[in-house]
Design a protein around this nucleic acid. Sequence first.
RNA 1: CGGAGCGUGGCGCAGUCUGGUAGCGCACCUGGUUUGGGACCAGGGGGUCGCAGGUUCGAAUCCUGCCGCUCCGACCA
Length: 441
Amino acid sequence: MRLSRFFLPVSKDTPADATIVSHQLMLRTGMIRQNGAGIYSWLPLGYRVLKKVEQVVREEMDRAGAIEMLMPTIQQADLWRESGRYEAYGKEMLRIVDRHDRDMLFGPTNEEMITDIFRAYVKSYKQLPLNLYHIQWKFRDEIRPRFGVMRGREFLMKDAYSFDATEADARRAYYRMFCAYLNTFARMGLTAIPMAADTGPIGGDLSHEFIILAETGESAVFCDRALLDIPAPGAGLDWAGDLEDEMHKRTQFYAATEEKHDEAAFEAIPEERRIAARGIEVGHIFYFGTKYSKAMNAVVMDESGNEVPVQMGSYGVGVSRLLGAIIEASHDEAGIIWPASVAPFGVGLVSLRVGDAAVSQACEAAYAALEAAGLEPLYDDRDERPGAKFATMDLIGLPFQLIIGPKGIEKGVVEVKVRATGERFEAPLEEAIARIRSIPA
RNA sequence: CGGAGCGUGGCGCAGUCUGGUAGCGCACCUGGUUUGGGACCAGGGGGUCGCAGGUUCGAAUCCUGCCGCUCCGACCA
């Protein structure tokens, strides 16, 4: 992409309405524009990142055996009357009436709808296990939306739903999602802490929240520091196997949100390992058994020919919220520092002398080479002073800047700056690209 | 919903207390000089002061009502 042809409305001034750094930076970089309380447009730069984050989530869900689909944003009230949640959900549900006076709603989540789909087609334990997910916009009429995309009223969520014939199988499905979540967040450069959590209005008896430590987080966090040092399980897991051990590696250590906090257990941790902090909830998983299958008559035949209500779990990731969480975890005075896995562009190509034929020619060659290498360059070909270009590249947080000017051309090299470390090096173009590709995210 | 605050060109703000017909910085446009870390000079365009009533010779400024947004609390991906 050439910057002169892109839509990148960056601003030097910090917007007055934003109080936390991720919100400020998302507005300053022109990633989002507010259209109302908790409602945002995703401008081109922000939308690119949103899609990158979504793709990481998708890949890790697929790896864990979940199957993607798409359910609508608008749902029928009658479905929710079956589970009893049409009345129970309260004012957070945005209710609407269509032209025929039918009660509809803008979906805050999809347990009822997926259960309805399941019961229409699945009749036998032989069709299980099954895990269906979608990545879809949700609406919750929050009492107080705040902090930009952290608590929007309209937000993008990945929600997965597992179906199993037995409780033991359902727990295995839960463990798989548990591991998939750790891998997902790790790929975005985040250390997510799984915490014992309340199940909330969704119900059930096994639930974890995944929290990213951040001072501006909305959740109180109490945990053992040891949790921060356990690496994510990684892609090489035996996803068909029993992953309970993987889960217990973490759950052996104390970690709880405020509702589940046990002060005595917390104080049993050696003092230097106690963390009492704040965090951002980026994922929440539930095993809730037959809560919906019983209410909505979603049954399958088991091995002995008995009809049993299907065992279910649900698994959410706040996709749009993750952008805020990543920025909170990864920024400096100059701006955002994107992990390469979700960066809107891979390399910022900076021309130091726009009118100069030799420089322009070298930039065009570098641009083509970066494109060919799959590095998704953003070429700053504007007639601006270099300082302004560097500041823009730093602000929008591209992992690398590839800088081309007359001095480098004399020496036959380009300069590369690594955003995260500030490290710089000079090398001939091909070598520079090879080194960029070899530097891990 | 309770408490606090804000609404003035695209953005950040001053002006409001003490009414006299709107200003600054950034951004934008034109010309010129510049160009290795957010340039400089000169000229220029852009605002029904959130909306509606009212008071007044006169309202951004005072009064009433409404709308919108932000922050603190209860809720959640």
